[in-house]
Design a protein around this nucleic acid. Structure first.
Lengths: 212, 212
DNA sequence: GTCTATAACGTGATAGAC
DNA sequence: GTCTATCACGTTATAGAC
């Protein structure tokens, strides 16, 4: 009976904590740190402002949790596919494009959120971002790319070149979607189709650019 | 003598006003509306906080001026070249890439600034951005593109397709420069060379993608 | 026009009851 | 754990002297 109570207690705790985190993710990602008011998060979570501080001590602490979580989400989309021993580099490019598309279709606000905090000089983001260097340079992806160059299969360019192409063509259309929607005079649904229709084309286009 | 005094008066006024605007551009573009404190602008302009409000009434008013100015700067980079009657579409693509590169090399913070305020739902930006629709659809650029498609010279795709490619490949590397610098393990100077070395390649790559 | 001093306000955080 | 009420602080904006 004591255990029963404890479990119930913990479940309830986790429930509220998760509700706050879920709300915080939405609002922080949509508006950034400075433009977000903790009151709004509390309201969106259906709880009181005081309770938010009870769980997370401060706005900054809560933010850092959301920030790290978001960075992980963003990086995970590529880390796994980049280190798959079983796939070719060509297949990896395809998979990265695919996984970014599915992530960003669901959460298009992530890149702007991350880059914005990076520009503000947020220390936590910078540390996380540092990790990307290792991830790339020590990845199976990087090795395969270097191999391809040695064999004369790919043009001799830094890995950064390829990564820039991939990220530019996959991420930017999501970041700039409000702008591009206006230019193209499309609504949300139509723009979504537009982006989807680009997906395979983008992959092929990138692969084609690898040739010497 | 009265006129002399008036001119002097006006010159001094313009001087201070411009100093404030210059400072505001720097800080607003670097940190966004919410994260900017008017005190910082005043300090950077070498004047007092009260004086800032004397000239611009409020933070919001000052911000809107900077915002519209920035949007104009951003849009102007393409509007002019897009409507040049004397150049071919191929030359226009080349020129747009060039003008964006020179603008963003000097002021790399502009795209993030604009997209960030657009995401916050800023009314003024949205109105300005609306103008882009007309600018593109009624441009010489758009006409030439449609002509090319009719002649079977280009693949049959919406103009938005081409615009997305151009913007993605030219703008994103500037927006994500802190991130990409870390990934590539390069310093500011080296990354600058990297971007410059991509310029011509990007142009050719885009042109190549026009083919059916 | 420009300053100093201060009012007015918004927001993050806490005290204390339940 | 959760709430209401309140404090504490930073920031915008203004009043008033020069």
């Amino acid at each position: 009976m004591k255990k029963q109570k404890l479990i119930q207690h913990e479940e309830k705790t986790i429930g509220t904590e998760q509700k706050i985190i879920a709300a915080a993710i939405n609002i922080f990602q949509a508006k950034g740190y400075a433009a977000t008011r903790t009151r709004d998060i509390a309201e969106a979570a259906g709880i009181n402002l005081a309770l938010l501080n009870y769980y997370f001590r401060s706005k900054e602490k809560l933010f850092e949790i959301i920030l790290l979580h978001t960075m992980d989400e963003f990086m995970q989309a590529m880390v796994i596919t980049m280190n798959d021993e079983k796939t070719s580099l060509e297949k990896k490019v395809e998979n990265v494009v695919l996984s970014y598309h599915s992530l960003l279709t669901e959460k298009p606000g992530i890149p702007l959120f991350v880059l914005n905090e990076l520009r503000q000089g947020n220390h936590a983001v910078m540390l996380k971002a540092m990790g990307l260097k290792k991830i790339f340079n020590e990845s199976v992806f990087a090795t395969q790319y270097q191999e391809g160059i040695k064999k004369g299969k790919y043009a001799k360019r830094p890995v950064l070149w390829l990564i820039t192409n991939i990220m530019s063509l996959t991420i930017f259309p999501f970041m700039a979607s409000p702008l591009l929607q206006m230019i193209g005079d499309t609504d949300y649904k139509e723009y979504d189709r537009f982006i989807k229709s680009r997906r395979d084309y983008v992959t092929k286009w990138i692969l084609q650019s690898l040739k010497p």
